[in-house]
């Protein structure tokens, strides 16, 4: 592009991100080798899985944890820390 043809984009042309939290739509699910599976019957709603998720991939609802598989990278901290075995592990693609 010739120099004089480069459009000036104003503040659109400045490297800032103006949409807070828009990474939520980015799919990190493809990173997973294993996925967490929640068993409501064993859950005591202790919130441990929710608190310890590094990717905010577990939402807290009135019914307990809700796993967001778009954000979940499969670290399995939730299953490791769950005191009642309500979070288990399942192989991806199994």
């Amino acid at each position: 592009m010739r120099e004089e043809e480069i459009p000036y984009k104003g503040i659109e042309g400045i490297p800032i991100i103006r949409e807070p939290g828009n990474a939520a739509k980015v799919n990190r699910g493809s990173w997973r080798l294993v996925r967490p599976v929640h068993h409501r019957d064993k859950c005591t709603r202790c919130k441990i899985c929710y608190i310890y998720c590094p990717d905010a991939a577990i939402n807290w609802t009135p019914d307990g944890p809700e796993i967001n598989l778009t954000s979940c990278k499969g670290c399995m901290i939730c299953a490791e820390e769950c005191p009642t075995g309500a979070m288990t592990e399942e192989k991806e693609g199994a």
Partner: peptide, 16 residues
Amino acid sequence: YFTGGSSTCAGCGPSL
């Protein structure tokens, strides 16, 4: 006030 979708490692302590 933090969402998923970042490129930090799975299980990243500092992200948490």
